[in-house]
């Protein structure tokens, strides 16, 4: 599927392209901050920025519901809980400083990342992507029907996993705490 437009709408395409590149910049710059920041709080902020950028790309892909869920679940829940963990797990004296990495680890990380980027990047450009004719348009209604019919088992399984994760994290987090006044 390629989006083509009436040439008289050229200005709108340029504007849309500029906004698209803005979201790409948000996603990538946030990612760089997330893996490179000195302080953990800054890394979490970078992660949130990157997630918002990816949510913008979801809008460009025509999946508005996924974009909303991305902001709600990732930015609203996961990032906030990471901030809570950063505040709970470290004393204020350490000032949320992320631990420093040795040069060997940095080199290893750089090598692994570059290797993956080269292999996958060559795969992206070497493959002739071929679109199949659309059978199901993928509206929100169809996604919802799929979740309750075809993917009902997976849906229930995910709810079970979430329940176990909630109970497990409550049990884990209570365990190390000394009883009050003891």
């Amino acid at each position: 599927m390629t989006f083509t437009f009436d040439p008289s709408l050229k200005l709108y395409i340029y504007l849309a392209d500029a906004a698209f590149l803005g979201f790409v910049f948000l996603a990538l710059a946030g990612g760089v901050v997330a893996v490179g920041a000195k302080r953990l709080i800054h890394a979490v902020l970078g992660l949130a920025t990157s997630l918002v950028g990816v949510a913008g790309l979801y809008v460009y892909l025509g999946t508005h519901f996924i974009a909303a869920m991305q902001i709600l679940i990732y930015v609203g829940a996961v990032c906030i809980s990471i901030v809570f963990a950063v505040m709970l797990a470290r004393p204020p004296s350490e000032a949320e400083r992320a631990p420093r990495a040795g040069p060997g680890k940095l080199a290893a990380g750089f090598g692994v990342g570059l290797f993956a980027a080269l292999v996958l990047g060559s795969a992206v450009f070497a493959t002739r992507w071929r679109a199949e004719p659309t059978a199901v348009a993928g509206t929100l209604q169809e996604v919802g029907e799929g979740l309750l019919t075809r993917y009902a088992f997976v849906f229930e399984l995910i709810s079970l996993v979430l329940l176990v994760a909630i109970v497990g994290s409550v049990v884990l987090a209570r365990r190390g705490r000394r009883p009050a006044g003891g």
Partner: peptide, 20 residues
């Protein structure tokens, strides 16, 4: 874009020493 995010994440996973 996804490739760059994946490579960044892999770099961070290998090079950063802290859990969070």
């Amino acid at each position: 874009v996804a490739l760059c995010l994946f490579a960044l994440g892999l770099y961070g996973l290998v090079s950063r020493p802290g859990f969070i």
